[in-house]
């Protein structure tokens, strides 16, 4: 079972989103998240919130199988992306990660040129060739609003850019693979308010053509950009609902306490 590829630039809206079924992740036998089930709706921004250590990032990283590389991590249950269980027996992990992009807590550009940062992965995946990679680079850098700032130094080091610009570059790098799902792990926690605002706008816009999952500690941010909220505590789902309900009329007492700042 292999996921079909999509063409760069001709993306259609995704249809099925991400569905997590009975997902348990253990580290050396200790459960980090326990039997989580949830549907992350397509073309929506879902914020995953909860106190430190509740398993937000663990959940996020199971969706693109980042736990594969950490010794001692055991994952059980299903994660279905666009109809395919990414933990299925004959799944192509490379293709899963092509379709599920990720942005990290801190910018982590490759120690290569700015253009290569965006162009290398599409080249590796066969989504671009020597002839059209430059157009792809320009297109993605324009999408994230970085083109004007870097067009004159495409072959320079990304480490000369500001932190916010580096994070935008990492976003362009991820978008260059035309993902259906994008995972954001506190992507703005280290950034200035302007870039944060810029990235939040981008998230809203990107959700028109992909499923967006964002882990955040910042409730104000969650309320600004999310359509849905998944609230976790101690590795379990407390409440999964629309953002409006979560912030204004949560069902669970613990959600109310968390939203009002009584627990953090």
């Amino acid at each position: 079972m292999q996921l079909a590829g999509t063409n760069v630039g001709t993306q259609e809206a995704v249809s099925e989103g991400v569905s997590v079924e009975g997902l348990t992740v253990k580290f050396r036998g200790t459960p980090l998240i326990e039997g989580i089930s949830n549907l992350f709706e397509p073309n929506k921004v879902t914020a995953i919130v909860g106190p430190t250590g509740c398993g937000k990032t663990t959940l996020l990283r199971s969706i693109n199988r980042m736990h594969d590389h950490v010794a001692g991590m055991q994952v059980s249950g299903k994660v279905v992306v666009e109809g395919v269980n990414v933990y299925g027996a004959d799944v192509n992990v490379r293709e899963v990660r092509r379709r599920v992009g990720m942005l990290f807590q801190r910018p982590n550009p490759f120690p290569r040129s700015i253009a290569e940062n965006v162009g290398l992965a599409p080249r590796a995946h066969g989504l671009a060739n020597r002839g059209n990679v430059r157009d792809l680079v320009q297109e993605q850098l324009t999408t994230v609003g970085l083109w004007d700032a870097v067009s004159s130094r495409l072959h320079g080091s990304p480490f000369g850019l500001s932190g916010g610009q580096q994070q935008l570059l990492c976003l362009a790098r991820t978008l260059a693979l035309s993902p259906d799902v994008i995972l954001l792990d506190e992507p703005t926690s280290a950034l200035d308010p302007d870039t944060t605002d810029h990235i939040e706008q981008l998230m809203k816009k990107l959700s028109e053509r992909m499923t967006v999952l964002i882990v955040t500690h910042n409730l104000a941010q969650a309320s600004r950009i999310s359509d849905n909220v998944l609230f976790l505590m101690k590795g379990n789902v407390v409440e999964a609902t629309s953002a409006r309900t979560f912030f204004h009329d949560p069902a669970d007492e613990r959600s109310r306490a968390y939203v009002s700042g009584r627990i953090g």
């Binding site: 490379r94 092509r98 990290f104 550009p109 490759f110």
Partner: peptide, 21 residues
Amino acid sequence: VLASEGAMALGMTKYEMVRVV
């Protein structure tokens, strides 16, 4: 680790990760 994970999250192979990062 963050740098290597960036390459892995893009579906790069070990060989590509070694070369790029």
